[in-house]
Computed example of a mutant assay.
Amino acid sequence: MFLLHRHPLKGGKVHDLDTEKDDLLSMGEKAMFIEHPTDPANRPKLNQVSKWDLPWAGITKLPYTITGPYLKTLFDKVFIDGLHNPMQRPNAEEWEIALLKTTDLMQKYHNVSCEQKWYVFDNTNTPRCPFCNTAHKGTLPVLDLYYQFQETTWKPENHRLMVYNDQYLFQWHVNRNIARNEKLTAAQKVPVGYFTFFNDKWVFVNQKLTSLKDVTEDKEIPIGTMLELTDGKKILLSKEEGGRVIVVTMANK
């Protein structure tokens, strides 16, 4: 309800003419996700909802999948797999990780007539804002995070960072041993660099990383210098234990 401004179980299906009984059934024994992928019985009826509930009540235009891949997976576990089987529902830590990963997928949008201003990247090569349906203009760097599985083997972490003008990079992106939680030190909360669109190119400006390396070009990137982001480029963020590699994909080319 915080994210999508609608109740996940209160749809168009009526279980009993008695309002109190109907509410007990729809919230309990007969509960059904309003966006169940194979059973549309509880879809909201837009001709029965208040105008104040629009546009959020319109699940066709604004489906729960606009929250991004990480939260979508957990919503499936809660409202489909685990709705009547609590043991299948995700725990609090899974929610925290998914929410934090989702913030890294947020993309700033500059359509002045769009109320939202931000949206979650949908992992397509031609992204558009789901709220105003306007296509993104210009290239869009997408950074996939990798960790060192073995000495010569790097594996994807199922974690992406979207780039926008003046987006910051933090220690918790650089090193997988640093968790983004309440235990962060003051020093760990300080950005280590930032991304910007400069001279018609996307670049990363290194402010604090002592072992930043352009792996593709086999070139060290000292503090105070910048690195251009190009499609397919591999960048080592840190040589320390837990240090990550990012791989750049240029969407919307």
Rank of each mutant, 00 (worst) to 15 (best):
P37L: 14
N158H: 07
K51Y: 15
Q88C: 04
W202P: 05
F75E: 10
L46P: 01
R6K: 02
V192K: 10
Y194D: 11
A98W: 08
D214H: 03
T216Y: 06
L105N: 03
L54I: 11
W95M: 04
V174T: 10
L105V: 03
I178M: 04
L4G: 07
K10T: 09
P63M: 12
F170V: 01
P222V: 13
Y64M: 15
Q107C: 12
K155V: 00
K21M: 15
A179P: 01
T102F: 01
D18F: 11
T19M: 13
Y64F: 15
L4V: 15
M87S: 10
K21W: 08
D22H: 15
G138H: 04
L236T: 00
K10H: 10
A179W: 08
M226P: 03
K233S: 05
F79I: 02
E115N: 11
K234Y: 00
S211T: 14
P156G: 08
G11P: 08
E220D: 13
L99A: 09
L229K: 04
G58E: 14
D18P: 09
V247G: 00
Y109V: 03
C129H: 03
T225F: 14
N125F: 13
T65H: 03
P191R: 11
K61Q: 14
D214T: 02
D76M: 06
W56E: 03
M1N: 13
T19A: 11
A92K: 05
D16E: 14
M32K: 06
F195K: 07
T196C: 12
P222S: 10
L229D: 09
G28L: 14
N85I: 06
I80G: 03
W172M: 01
T73I: 08
F170L: 11
G28D: 12
V192W: 15
L46E: 06
H173A: 05
F2Q: 10
N123S: 02
A187R: 04
I97G: 03
Q150T: 09
M162D: 01
E29L: 10
L143C: 04
M162G: 00
C114Y: 00
Y70I: 08
T216P: 08
G242Q: 12
K201W: 05
E93Y: 08
L62Q: 02
M87G: 05
H36T: 08
E29G: 00
K45V: 11
I235F: 00
E228P: 01
A187F: 13
G58I: 13
V174K: 02
V203E: 04
T38I: 08
G12C: 15
K253W: 09
N123D: 03
K117F: 12
D23G: 11
L74V: 01
G28S: 13
L143K: 00
L4H: 10
I80T: 10
H7P: 10
N199P: 01
L236M: 04
T225I: 14
T249C: 11
M32G: 05
L227V: 07
D166Q: 07
T210P: 02
T153R: 04
T230V: 14
N85C: 09
H110R: 03
D23W: 12
Q207W: 15
E93W: 11
L46V: 04
P127W: 09
T102M: 07
R43T: 06
N111R: 04
R244G: 00
V203H: 00
D81T: 05
P55C: 14
N165D: 15
N85A: 06
G193P: 02
K21Q: 08
L209K: 02
F79R: 00
